Simulated scan of single mutants.
Amino acid sequence: MPSFTVSDGTNIYYKDWGNKDAKGTVVFSHGWPLNSDNWENQMFYLANRGYRVVAHDRRGHGRSDQPWTGNNMNTYADDLLQLIEHLDLKDVMLVGHSTGGGEVARFLGRHGSSRVQKAVLVSAITPFLLKTEDNPKGTPIEVFDSFRAAIEKDRAQFFIDVASGPFFGFNRPSVKASQGQIWSWWQQGMMTGIRGAHECVEVFSKTDMREDLKRIDIPVLVLHGDDDQIVPFEGSAPEVMKLLKKGTLKVFEGASHALPNMNIDGVNHELLAFLAA
């Protein structure tokens, strides 16, 4: 399996598909507690249309190492930079889902856009997920405390509950549940080390990316479902648009947090159109 070692000795697994001679490359960052497999529909679609597509398993997740340290957004962004440098990628379009969207925002705020032309935030945790005095539309800390407690008590059952309910929107009466999607989400979640899964809850809840978004100087496409139960729409996408210099918002009506899985054709269409723009 292809992998490389970052500066602190952590081994990072990645996929590198499609046309290696393509002018641009699409680099995907996945959400919690998943891995690069969650992007397979988008990667397959774009690779079959002549693009080079790359996705890694974040440290602590999937087939990458499970280090005890470095489970924070700055290190996630640094790992992504080292992946791009390892493959010497240029003219990149970064695409991040959920926590991966936060990783993309922090990458651009921390490392700039010298190798990046465009970015896409999909159901992203941006700009700031936690409810605070200056972020009243956020989610109360008690919700995230309950996540950590559930991971400690019975992680396997908690991951079944999340996948069976709010993540895909299968708790909505109009949505038909896919047992395959539930199993896939659970499998990916259980491949993640418990330390990485537990600490990533802190990362996606408490990382404030408002200043990162202000620094981004490239076009950014924001994709979000207005029935997202994980990252509620009102506290996310509209607030992101207020901070971006060159942002475009596409709202998926009635859609859940799992846009790459539940709205495959729509997301693929938006990515391809944005690449060509």
Results as ranks from 00 to 15, higher is better:
Ser146Asn: 11
Ile141Trp: 07
Asp212Thr: 03
Pro238Val: 00
Ile125Phe: 02
Asn19Gln: 06
Gly24His: 14
Ala276Met: 13
Val95Lys: 12
Phe233Asp: 01
Gly60Arg: 13
Trp186Thr: 06
Ile125Trp: 01
His111Cys: 06
Gly62Val: 03
Asp208Ser: 07
Asp79Val: 11
Glu133Asn: 14
His198Gly: 10
Ile264Thr: 09
Glu103Cys: 08
Gln82Tyr: 02
Phe167Glu: 01
Asp161Lys: 15
Gly62Trp: 03
Gly101His: 04
Phe168Tyr: 15
Ile12Leu: 14
Asp37Met: 12
Leu244Lys: 03
Gly138Arg: 00
Val120His: 02
Arg172Gln: 05
Pro67Lys: 08
Gly100Thr: 02
Val53Glu: 09
Val53Tyr: 07
Phe4Gly: 03
Ala255Val: 02
Lys118Gln: 08
Met191Ser: 07
Gly225His: 14
Ile194Ala: 14
Gly102Ile: 06
Ile182Thr: 05
Tyr76Thr: 04
Asn268Val: 06
Phe44Gly: 04
Pro232Lys: 00
Tyr76Leu: 11
Arg110Leu: 15
Gln229Lys: 15
Lys131Ala: 00
Val251Gly: 03
Thr207His: 08
Trp39Arg: 04
Asp79Phe: 11
Ala77Cys: 05
Thr25Gln: 08
His97Ala: 04
Ser174Glu: 15
Lys118Thr: 05
Arg210His: 09
Arg59Asn: 04
Phe170Tyr: 13
Arg148Lys: 15
Gln42Asn: 11
Val143Lys: 08
Gly138Phe: 02
Leu129Pro: 00
Cys200Phe: 15
Val201Trp: 04
Phe274Ala: 04
Arg155Lys: 14
Cys200Glu: 15
Tyr45Asn: 12
Ile230Phe: 01
Asp154Leu: 01
His61Trp: 10
Leu259Asn: 01
Glu152Met: 08
Val53Lys: 05
Val6Phe: 09
Ile151Cys: 10
Ile151His: 12
Pro173Leu: 09
Gly247Phe: 00
Gln181Tyr: 13
Asp37Ser: 09
Thr99Met: 13
Trp32His: 02
Asp208Glu: 05
Glu270Met: 11
Ser178Asp: 10
Met209Ala: 10
Gln66His: 11
Ala163Tyr: 00
Thr132Tyr: 12
Glu270Tyr: 12
Leu223Trp: 01
Trp68Arg: 07
Leu259Thr: 02
Asp79Gly: 08
Glu85His: 06
Pro67Ala: 03
Val143Trp: 09
Met1Arg: 08
Val116Asn: 06
Thr192Lys: 06
Lys242His: 01
Gln157Ile: 13
Asn35Ser: 11
Ser98Asp: 08
Leu80Gly: 05
Arg215Ile: 11
Gly138Glu: 02
Gln179Lys: 15
Gln66Thr: 07
Lys176Gln: 07
Asn11Ser: 13
Arg58Thr: 03
Ser3Asp: 09
Lys153Leu: 13
Lys153Gly: 09
Met1Phe: 05
Gly165Ala: 12
Ile125Thr: 12
Ile151Glu: 08
Asp57Cys: 14
His97Asn: 05
Pro232Tyr: 00
Ala105Gln: 10
Arg115Asn: 10
Gln181Pro: 01
Gln82Met: 06
Phe168Asn: 10
Lys246Cys: 04
Glu85Tyr: 05
Met43Phe: 04
Ala156Ser: 09
Arg148Ile: 11
Arg115Tyr: 12
Asp88Cys: 07
Val92Tyr: 02
Asn38Glu: 12
Gly109Cys: 03
Pro232Asn: 00
Gln187Tyr: 13
His224Arg: 08
Ile194Ser: 13
Trp39Met: 13
Asp78Leu: 14
Gly225Ser: 14
Ser3Cys: 11
Trp17Leu: 10
Arg58Leu: 07
Ser123Gly: 15
Arg110Asp: 06
Arg155Val: 11
